[in-house]
Write a protein that binds this DNA or RNA. Structure first.
Lengths: 241, 241
DNA sequence: ATCCACGTTTGGTCAGACCAAATCTTTATG
DNA sequence: CATAAAGATTTGGTCTGACCAAACGTGGAT
């Protein structure tokens, strides 16, 4: 029964320019309307081509388009998965371009500088406006970070988790996505940094300095501590690429 | 003469998984290496399929991929144009997802809040670190903004130009691209705001207040002035969508 | 020199086919 | 009876060949 779909039996033939656009918007609608559930796989290509009365060529093109728009997440040999896009999707959609830009000249440093600037503003904001539950979260994360000094992998995770809190305090959903993007893109180029426990100790001290400045409600000290911390981190890894 | 290309006569057949990737990277190389000049059109599809020994299907898929990566800029019925991607390309690549996100719930406000936060940090930075040429640029832009109070279109342009300077002071190429993205995305939803001259006067006053605080080297005042200014702007347009 | 009709190039789409990886089914095994 | 191995089916990736309409280039008419 092909006629349970709102845009069924749409000819889209002979005369229409860009037939792909039609089915793109159709599937788009089905996704945002929830008719296609988030996380579920898209129907097979041959199915769709029957449903819309178009060739597989166009179906594939539409899938590609929707993938770049972040509404589908398609791995090479698998069915595309429906994704109601969040702010993360926006950043993952640019992955391709960014990886290019990072490969050029001082690309990584450029991005890292943006992170430094933004995160400095965030810790300043935290020092001024962090609520007690934010501070509690920071304290917990800091403690977990300290406990992981001897475990390289776990230390990295707790490190990221600590920084992530600053991006959450604002309450704006874009910023956590920005942070995840930073982590993804920068870690890509920081591979195998095999830091020692002493190195981790320095990092932890950096985290603690930031935290202390925040509970002191001293935005300048917090910002300064973060700049020092991220500066140290940069010096540590600058040679690895 | 098909053999002047480094990746010519690559079979890419029978056994190779994902033939498209090969030619994607090949064309990618040609673009970054300058063999394909920026701004020039890509060779015709049938040409490429001959060059690489692949079907047009794969050629088209590769073109689609490169387009999403920002290396090609393809309009519907025209030849794709080679683009050495800059940071702007990254943001224009997400246009699709973002327009989606902006349509949802408080999407525009969410993005606007990010802009407010970032720009507040930027004016603070400007108050602390702006060099004299930066201040000169601000002064010029402010003057042009004042002169355009009675011209709605020109006022908008000078308005944007004034704010743009703050994104440039850092010297990081990402931030101007961020600004252009903000302008593109937010203006898309601020259409036809037909402001009056009095309204423009208020805006100009906001700009001047920021500028004055910066030449006073007072970061807190500058930040506050910007928050007030952007807050006013928001109140003006909040009903228009 | 300018402009319009013409033929050619080229992107967009369709149809049918094949292969190999994924997935589902069935059967053999502990 | 659960589980793992073997087989059948689905499905994405690619190829070939074809057609149409828009874009482009060419040359003649004004």
């Amino acid at each position: 029964m092909p006629s349970d779909h709102p845009l069924d039996d749409t000819p889209a033939r002979a005369g229409n320019q860009r037939a792909a656009d039609a089915i793109v918007t159709a599937i788009e609608q089905d996704i945002v309307s929830g008719l296609l559930e988030n996380g579920s796989p898209l129907p097979p290509e041959r199915d769709l081509m029957g449903r819309f009365g178009i060739s597989r060529t166009v179906v594939r093109e539409a899938i590609a388009t929707l993938t770049t728009r972040g509404l589908l997440e398609s791995k090479p040999r698998h069915r595309p998965i429906v994704r109601r896009p969040g702010y993360d999707a926006a950043f993952s959609a640019v992955g391709g371009v960014v990886s290019h830009l990072l490969r050029q000249d001082g690309g990584v440093k450029t991005l890292y500088d943006v992170r430094i600037f933004l995160e400095a503003s965030l810790v300043r904001h935290a020092a001024l406006h962090a609520r007690k539950e934010d501070i509690a979260a920071l304290r917990t994360a800091l403690e977990q970070n300290r406990a992981a000094i001897d475990d390289p992998v776990l230390f990295d995770n707790t490190d990221v988790a600590f920084h992530a809190i600053f991006y959450r305090i604002l309450g704006n959903p874009v910023l956590p996505a920005v942070h995840r993007a930073f982590v993804t893109w920068l870690f890509e180029h920081w591979q195998s940094m095999n830091r020692s426990a002493e190195q981790n100790l320095i990092y932890y001290a950096g985290h603690k300095a930031i935290f202390d400045a925040i509970i002191d409600r001293d935005p300048d000290a917090a910002e300064q501590a973060l700049l020092v911390h991220l500066g140290e981190a940069w010096e540590t890894v600058r040679g690895t690429f």
